[in-house]
């Protein structure tokens, strides 16, 4: 009985749906505020994203008559389920995640792809030309960033010698953070570049380029379904940041300062916020690339960084 209750608590409240969406939306608000200040303007208040999502939730639910309604309606829910599950597999409060699975790095890589696939399905099923173009672009982008993303993870796996995220975090607790290992610096850079593509931020916001294809795959979405997509997107930001934090920054560490026990979740929040702010800076200093340029960039420069890191880990003792 306790196990069932704790499972429900984990998946719905902490670190699952409620916690993840609240923090994800907060990070999106911080991102928008910082963006505003970088552009020398005031920007929206930090809680703006809550207001936006709340307002969208209260709107009328519309399914376009040209859309494949089943796929169109279910896609955001599956994506939400997938990102929430990743949240359960990440070390949030301590090195031990809420849900343990064997070889969970592979599970995380797999689950992180589900929102992308749902986005494509949603775009293709929406029945609009912009949705189709956006989905087609996202397919290309998926094939470009995913390779680099996985190679960077393999570099970490080769360094630690385990496919288990818990083991990676435990290894860092004993031997120091992996970011301090010079051989893994290129892998970290490659990871952040591919995260930029995964989260569709400038210069890789090609699948939802506003001036070209309105909002890409999400063009036809509105109301509560769009709100769910926004939550998915924001949780995905948090999840990818948490994943990078766990791989390179030692995951959540509980500190004791002057007798106070600071829980690991505070450390998790600080580390993820730093990574989100790095992506915010990156998205404000560049123009959007074309899809062919993005593909070329990923398969040359970013892939080179990841391979270099892997080689260094394997060759240099």
């Amino acid at each position: 009985m306790m196990e069932v209750l704790s499972f429900f608590f984990n998946s719905l409240v902490f670190p699952g749906l409620l916690f993840a969406s609240l923090i994800g939306l907060l990070y999106a608000g911080i991102d928008r505020k910082v963006t505003g200040h970088m552009q020398h303007r005031i920007g929206p208040p930090i809680w703006q994203e809550y207001l936006d999502v709340g307002k969208l939730m209260g709107k009328e639910d519309i399914t376009p008559s040209a859309a494949q309604s089943l796929v169109f309606n279910v896609a955001p829910l599956i994506a939400l389920g997938a990102v929430t599950t990743v949240m359960l597999l990440l070390p949030v409060n301590s090195a031990q995640p809420a849900l343990t699975a064997v070889a969970d790095l592979i599970v995380i890589i797999y689950l992180l792809n589900i929102p992308a696939i749902c986005l494509m399905l949603g775009g293709y099923s929406s029945g609009g030309p912009f949705g189709s173009v956006g989905a087609a672009r996202y397919v290309v982008q998926l094939f470009s960033y995913e390779f680099v993303f996985i190679l960077a993870i393999i570099a970490v796996i080769a360094r630690v010698g385990s496919l288990d995220l818990t083991a990676v975090v435990g290894y860092q607790a004993q031997r120091g953070w992996l970011i301090l290992d010079l051989r893994l610096i290129p892998a970290l850079i490659a990871m952040i570049i591919s995260a930029q593509g995964k989260l569709m931020r400038v210069p890789f916001d090609i699948p939802e380029a506003e001036t070209e294809i309105v909002h890409g795959a999400l063009t036809e979405y509105s109301g509560p379904k769009l709100a769910i997509w926004r939550i998915v997107y924001n949780i995905e930001t948090l999840v990818v940041a948490g994943f990078i934090a766990a791989l390179f920054l030692g995951g959540p560490v509980a500190y004791t300062i002057g007798g106070f026990q600071i829980p690991g979740v505070a450390d998790f929040l600080i580390k993820t916020l730093i990574i989100v702010l790095i992506t915010t800076i990156l998205r404000n200093i560049m123009a959007r690339l074309r899809i062919d340029q993005a593909l070329k960039f990923y398969w040359t420069f970013a892939a080179f960084l990841a391979v270099l890191s892997l080689m260094l880990v394997l060759v240099v003792p």
Binding site: Q39, H40, V202, A209, T211, N284, A287, R288
Partner: peptide
């Protein structure tokens, strides 16, 4: 033009 190529920072600064 900066907005058309997704460079929103330059857009805001030029209009400032």
């Amino acid at each position: 033009a900066a907005h058309q190529i997704g460079f929103n920072t330059l857009f805001m600064l030029a209009w400032r």
